[in-house]
Each structure stands twice: as C-alpha cells, then as structure tokens.
Design a protein around this nucleic acid. Structure first.
Lengths: 189, 189, 189, 189
DNA sequence: GATGAATGAGTTTTCATTCAT
DNA sequence: CATGAATGAAAACTCATTCAT
C-alpha cells in the first residue's frame, strides 16, 4: 500500500506559498497548487477538506513556526531583551521567508481567514500585551493603552518586511538593531 | 467611455467600498456592485473599462482624498507640525472611513493593484522621505535610512486604524496625540 | 435590452426530459442540458438556482400539467366516471409523453426530489382518497383501507405506461377501457 | 477475479443496499460502500469489475432470492393458489426487506441496469404470462392481453411495498389477503 | 489477497464581460 | 446612455478506478 506521506503536506504548503507570492491569493487555484506540487488535483483533497482549510492550516503552520514557538522559552529574560528577541525573530522570519510573509499578509484579512486563525493572532497579541503591562508597572514603559502600542510593532514589522522583500534589501543585524531602537524609543518612558 | 457623471461614479464607488468591507475583495462581484448601486451590470462598463480599472480608480480616488490632497498646503510649516498634521489627517480619515480603509487595505496588495496605483503611494512616500531628509539635516531626527522609518508610520497608521475599526473604538484627539508622540519619540534624535 | 424569454424555460424543460429519457438521470449534466437547449451553461442559472431546483420545477410542471390540472373540473360527475376520466387522462399523458414519464419516474425517487415535490403527490393522493371514501360510503366500493387501494392505481398506471413506452405500443381507447375495467372490478363492492 | 468468498460478497451487498436506501443511488459511491463494509476501496474491485457489475449482481441476487427461487416448486398447484403464493411471497419479501426493495426500485430503471438484468425480469414475467395464458384457456381469467395484466401485479406490488416501507406499516396476513383479492377480482372472468 | 493513497476526467456553479434591445 | 439576459471559460470539488506496497 502507498503510505500516507506527510512530507506531501509540506510540498503542498510550499507550492501554495510560492504561488501566492507570485500571482496573489485571488488567482490561487487548487489546480495550480496541484500542478506546482506535482500531484493530482484530487490529492489535495486527501489532505485538506477544502481550499479554505488548506489556507487556514498553512497560515497556522507559518504563524506557529514564525512567532508562537519562541514565546515560551524567553519568559525569564528582562523585558527589553524579550521584546528585542521577538522583534529580531519576527523580522528575520519575515525577511528570509518573503513568500511566506506575502501569503500571511494576503491571507490575514481575506475571506478565507477563519475564527480559529484569528484566535492564534490573539494569543500572540495577548502575550505581548502582558509583557507591556509588566513594563508599565515597572515604569519602564509609557503608561499608554496597550491597544495603541501593539499596532506599532505589528504594523511596523509587517510593513518593513514587505518593503524590504519588495526592494530585495538584505537584512542585517544592524538593521534589526536600528529598527528595534526606533520601537523602544517610541514606548520607553 | 467615461463620461463625467460624478453622481453615478460616486454611487459606484460607495457601493464598492461598502461591499468590500462586508464580504471582502474576493467575493466582490461586478453584479453585486451593480445591484448595490441600483443600476444594471452593463452600466458599470460605461464608466469603467473593467473591474480592475474600477478598483484602481477607486483606490486612487480614496488615496488622493485622504492624504495626497493635504500635502501641498502645509509645506511652509515646521517639520514636526507637518508630520503631526499628516498623522492626524491620515488617522482621522482611516478611522472615520472604516469601509474605505478596509477596501484600501485589501486592495493595496491584491492582484488588482496596478503599477499606476503603486506610483501614487511612491509619491506620498517621496514627500515624507523629503521631510525626513530635512529633519535629519536639521539634526532633529535620527540619522537613519528613511526606508527604515517610513514603514513605521505607514504600518502603524494602517494597523491602528484597522484595529480601531474592528473594535469599533472611536477616535479622539487624545488618541491622535498619544500615538503621534509614540512616533515622534521613535524618530527624534 | 434582451428581454427575458419565458419560452426559454420550456426549451430547457424539453431538453431535460429528452436527455433524461435518453441517458438517465445519473448521467444528466447541466452542460449537456445547455448544449441540447442550444444555450450557454450559465444561462440555465439565470432561470434556475441550481440543478436541483431545475429538476424539481420540471417535475412540478409535468405533474400539474398531467394530473392536477383536471381534478377541479370533474368534481360534479359520478364517482366511477371521475375515476375513469382520471385514469384516461393519466394514461394518455403517460403514454403520449414517454420522455416526460421516464423523467418523472426517475426523478420521483431520486435524491433530488424535495419536500415540496412530495407534497404535490400528496395533494393528488388526497383527492383520490377522498373519492374512494365517498365510494365506500355509497357502498359502491369495497370497504378496504384506501392506502391499500391507491398503490394499485398508481403502480399500475406507472408500470403499464412504462411498459407500453418501452414496447412502443400505441395506446387506444380500447386499452384504456380494458385496463380501467380491471381496476374497477378490483375495487367495486 | 471473483473468487468465491461469500461472506465478503454478502457484506458488500448489505452495505450497498443499506446505503442506497439511506442516501439514494445517486449519492452511492464506491468508497462509501467500502467504508460501510469496513474494507478498503480497492477490495471491492477484487470481487467486482466495476460499480456497474456490483450493482447488477446485487440486483440479480435479490431478484432470484425474492421471486425466481419459488417458481419451480409450485407448478403443480391450481392457478389461483399459485398466483396467491407468488403474491404473498413477493409482498413478504418486499415489505420485510425494505432497504432491498428501495435498492431494486432505484436500480431497476437506472442507467446501471444491464441487458442481462432486464432478461431476469423477462424470465419472471414469462412465467406469469404462461400462468395467465392457462387461466384464460380455462376461462377462469378475463380474456385480456397479458401485457395489460402483468403491470397491474407488478406495479401494484412495487408501489404497495414501497408505500408500506415508507409509512413503516407492518404487513399482516390480512393485508396480503385483501390486496390479493383486489388483484384477483380485477382479472377473474 | 488486501489496502487506501493517488489519479484526473468530469461535475456543478460562478462571474467578468458582451451585446441585443 | 442604460439595461440585464446571455455567454463560456474557469473555479472548486467528486469519485470510479488504478496501483504501489
């Protein structure tokens, strides 16, 4: 019997991200994914119930891999260090995986994004909110509603990465440093 | 084609923004636009060559109305004041026109966005870049590559507005003040 | 403007019945209907929401045309005469519209048949039940549960018509007479 | 192919009849049969060349089991008795095996039914025709073309059984008696 | 024999665009 | 100009059948 091959899921994911970054989410079709992944159209449906599920699972996979996975391991570090690590991690991922970022960006606000997916984001946002709350108590960070601060990090990271990907600028530690300092100066009290 | 009947064009634009914010760009169809605008499907093609043109013209219309239009009139003011006015203007527009912002956001990186449209953005970015260059010469602003600064403003504004629209938070002068100060603290030298 | 052409619905109905009798309900596709009706595939969806609706509306159309339409006009006649007219009407229709009957037969118990459609049948059955009830009161008809009698008429008519259509036997008044007498002898008291 | 493993074949047959009565012939898929029969999709093809063959063999199996098998053993009985036994046998089978009857009914006139299958029916019909011929010679039965009589039995039995199955009415000897008398009164001279 | 993953032709349905009125 | 019926290519998804294990 042909064994169910879990690397196939990765092949599908790769084909999907690559195609989305090339032609956009709107022109992404199941048959084009299949063609790119070198398998039959029907095979996609063995691994995913529908196009919607495929995209949602890909998003969750990327989101977990890019950000959620580091959160637990840095809880003991000082606040600024934690933020700086997250910033670096997020930026590195975003810049070195430009196709993936383009996919995430287009998917994020598309009709395909499910409740479940949005909750992942909330989880991340919740963590950051917590961090900022701490910082405010310690009087390190300006006493401003976190909902006004988070979009700065979030929007800046997204936009910066997208811009760099489009201009084909390579990321350096210096750039990460500089941009993090902008953020830090913005929020430090 | 394209006779000036601004009433009709506005009706089409309003229908398009409203629908996009309700069902998303992916599910936006020409006949749904026509239906919402209370006209026939074919009438849309009297005013716009194609769906792509319609969307691009709408984007340009919104972009000019929301930002580009203020730029010339404030050139004589001091740097920080100029930035603050632009910030306020942009944010007000984004928050008080949430449908429009959702449309712009979804359209901005979609397959529909043409070269021409991207150049509009560049025009705006060029203006800001200029401003920042001035600031750096006057040693008011950190000496950092403007391409690293602009995404902060751009991304922050976009994200903040989208978040506020979704949470149905009302904008106040205080919020504009607070958020602008975050930005300013980030870049001031 | 092209005017919405209601004869088109008949064209579609005819194509559908003809095709069903030729290839069966299972191989009946929307594109084959469109092709046979000499119109585009999408045109079908202007007149019918879905394949299911098309089939249901066709069934109702045929059912009403073939049986339901005569019921009201014969209420004043004596019982046996009424039954005999219905029998004749049903049989004539079934035999002279063999494609239609094949469609109705295949559709009747298919997955496509909706609640609404079944209710039509009930309406007809209800009428006959009433008639039989009268007959029993007048002691003309055997005092047997109507649910045991109706399938005789219903099943016999269906089967006889189908058989005659397949054997390409022509119907005659004599045949109608003979077969009705079988039925009548079966139920008369 | 087609090794005799009757246990497995029966499992497949049961799964097929059950599923057909639940979802209809149109939604009956090979993989759903396999799933219900708790075996792999490919296994079905060890026992049957194709879906069409499977269905035809099932029909023949049911037909033989339900009717054909009794014919030889009653040839010596008087005409009315023979008919009455067949009626009883047929009705009992149809009512106590409602899934099977639904399958037979849906299959009977579907695209899947092969020549071979139709010949089975002819065999049964031929036997009955013979019987009726006898009856006419003995002047017990009306002198009417048998092709006009058989559909009465055939259609009545089918329809009655289907109706009772749907209404979940239990069959009794009384019902069999009553309905047979209807038939007999119809044809007796 | 048995499995079930893989195939890909075929199905229903959508929708940007055209065009007769 | 305005209409909206008509078009047909293309999309998502299904499923009988094959085949590597």
């Amino acid at each position: 019997m042909r064994v169910r091959d879990d690397t196939k899921i990765n092949t599908i994911f790769e084909a999907t991200t690559a195609l989305t970054s090339e032609v956009g989410l709107n022109r992404l079709t199941m048959s084009s994914i299949a063609q790119r992944a070198k398998m039959a159209c029907g095979t996609l449906y063995i691994y995913f119930d529908s196009k919607e599920r495929l995209l949602n699972e890909l998003y969750m996979h990327l989101f977990v891999g890019s950000t959620l996975s580091i959160l637990p391991s840095i809880g003991h570090l000082p606040l600024k260090k934690q933020l700086s690590i997250i910033w670096s991690k997020v930026l590195w991922f975003r810049v070195t995986n430009s196709s993936e970022v383009i996919f995430m960006h287009q998917f994020r606000y598309s009709v395909y994004a499910s409740e479940e997916t949005h909750k992942l984001d909330d989880q991340f946002v919740g963590f950051i909110k917590n961090l900022l709350g701490q910082g405010k108590e310690e009087l390190i960070i300006k006493n401003i509603d976190s909902d006004l601060i988070i979009p700065l990090f979030y929007g800046y990271a997204n936009n910066l990465a997208r811009q760099m990907a489009m201009d084909e600028v390579e990321i350096t530690d210096e750039i990460i440093d500089q941009t993090f300092h902008l953020c830090w100066d913005a929020i430090k009290s």
